[in-house]
Write a protein that binds this DNA or RNA. Structure first.
Lengths: 330, 330
DNA sequence: GCCGCGAATGTAAGCGGTTACATTCATGCC
DNA sequence: GGCATGAATGTAACCGCTTACATTCGCGGC
């Protein structure tokens, strides 16, 4: 039980060092003039007593927690872990802490988190590609600073050029001679998925679409369904890498070779994309960078700001183009 | 700047509702007797004013933050994201928040975190397979509750049966007829790595060891070195999955087939292990379960407790045994 | 020796809640 | 009607720190 510790407070240090609490505080925070000798004595006493300032007491006093909150749709998968990594790295550099929370795509849980932020975090980063999400901001304390990831809202957000990425990929496939390009869609309500779909539709010669939900299973299912078509596509473009992996397994299980029989492409460029066989051609999303920028935006003063991160085509082997083979070994 | 919000406090609600702050508090926390009508009025006022209790103020008062800290060696890779997921799920169930921090294997950063926990988290989960880590506990406020992951300390810890897992894998390889089994080691100071190595040494007919550090690159390098041996091993057992992936790529790049020419095995069973080609035979570590238990232990009263999680052999295709093929599709 | 003044330090009022204790209120009973 | 009694509510101290403001100290200049 967290009771045994927590005993030594600033008062104890003050008493022991023979000064007032104000002086302790001044020394610890490097504010106000303190005589060199006094300062040394205070520091020694702190060490002797193993004193550490009490986090929430300090936060209450200075009205800042130096913590930012991160709300994710789910903690599954590499995409999210990369985002966390990007944010954490930046937060640490700035002396901030990170409070993470995965809500299982549940509206109520999301609201619960929104109601718990006051006095707990200085700012909130919400990643919820669900289009409805921005509406839920109403449940935040009025005026609470927030930044939206992969979603657009009224105040500050940062998103990905999904449309451009999809467009570039379809162009690449067409350049390789493909005309029957299938697309595996993401979840209906997902903003990223919608943009990727739009990019595909606007660029592909014909629309061959399969439902999906960003999971490997969905990719697998789509792969199986696809193979039963009389006129199979010659290329498959999955709305994210995880689904592309699913397709890959479905094809492998059915003895269909990638890229020889069917070309396969994904979206995101999660770390694993390099390690599957064949390495996956995909659209690279600068995930860690997304996190980094999100953090910077979260602690910035700007009331209003919309950023868009560009994507890049990463050509590996799953589409049969080995001319520009990239990143087999990291 | 986080300044615009944060205006409405419990006092405002009290004034507006025509009651004292104590009553507000009682209603919100469901303590003490409150007349039905009063309660309703308070709740309505809270909603009207969009009042939310101030986190740190509350924490300071009740001397509990309902937050637990998680300190990880690095936020890289699937292993850690799985751990976070396991802990988060359990924390949410118990109404706790999760403060994560990745320290880049830097001693100083770790100490810095240790000094920042007082009054910020109720308990700390530290995952640091580095053997030295438990010594660093001295930098924690005296008596601060902590649980060690994959490391043994004086108070509470939970670790993995690395020895047994390695042993089982080597036995499996021997049963398949292998006698020249190479092992790719983890980092020197890593406790998990040391136990896995010990399991290998105690079971393998001969020791063919390569240095490694749990990274894909290290696996790749070991793979290349291995191929230049005059008498190559017939099976390779990497101390973790990431290194096994590296080996897989090295072999593929050199035209060596797995498992036909060389059998390959890993350790951890991270999600990706199922998706590489061929699917990786490995030792399953119940990662999310590890997180779950760690959390439970963190908030428990037990002063002293050591848990060990069992591992299981997961036979896929990378060792040529297709008899018990498992989990191709999740 | 006294005064003025900046440097060093101390005092105490918050920060926004919780809660022990005090107070008020509504009943029921004599 | 007076009073004991428990329910409902209010008062104010406290959690551990920061900081505005007050106080004291040390010292140079007259």
């Amino acid at each position: 039980m967290p009771d045994s510790h927590d005993r030594v407070t600033i008062k104890d240090v003050a008493a022991q060092a023979g000064v007032s609490v104000a002086t302790i505080s001044r020394v610890l925070n490097g504010k106000g003039p303190v005589r060199e000798a006094t300062s040394r004595r205070v520091i020694e006493t702190c060490q002797a007593l193993r004193f550490t300032p009490h986090g929430v007491a300090r936060s209450l006093s200075i009205r800042r927690t130096h913590t930012i909150g991160l709300l994710l749709p789910d903690l599954h998968g590499e995409f999210f872990s990369e985002v966390i990594r990007g944010i954490d790295a930046e937060a640490r550099r700035s002396g901030y802490h990170l409070l993470v929370s995965g809500f299982h795509s549940d509206r109520q849980e999301m609201i619960a988190v929104f109601r718990a932020v006051r006095g707990r975090v200085d700012s909130l980063i919400v990643m919820s590609p669900d289009r409805e999400a921005s509406a839920l901001c109403a449940y935040l304390p009025a005026g609470f600073p927030i930044v939206l990831l992969n979603n657009t809202g009224v105040s500050r957000d940062i998103s990905i050029d999904n449309y451009g990425g999809a467009e570039a990929m379809v162009r690449h496939l067409r350049a390789l001679g493909h005309t029957r390009i299938a697309f595996i869609k993401g979840p209906d309500q997902n903003a990223d998925a919608a943009e990727r779909l739009r990019g595909y539709r606007d660029t592909s010669p014909q629309a061959i679409e399969f439902d999906g939900n960003f999971s490997e299973e969905a990719g697998y299912d789509a792969g199986i369904r696809m193979l039963s078509m009389t006129q199979k596509p010659t290329a498959v473009f999955a709305a994210n890498d995880a689904m592309a992996f699913g397709v890959m397994i479905a094809l492998r299980d059915s003895g269909v070779r990638v890229p020889h029989d069917i070309a396969l492409a994904g979206f995101d460029d999660i770390p694993t994309a390099r390690y599957v066989t064949p390495p996956l051609t995909t659209v690279k999303v600068p995930i860690a960078e997304l996190g980094r920028r999100a953090f910077d935006l979260a602690i910035s003063d700007e009331e209003q700001r919309h950023e868009v991160l560009q994507t890049t085509l990463v050509i590996r082997e799953s589409c049969g183009s080995t001319i520009l083979r990239g990143g087999t070994k990291s």
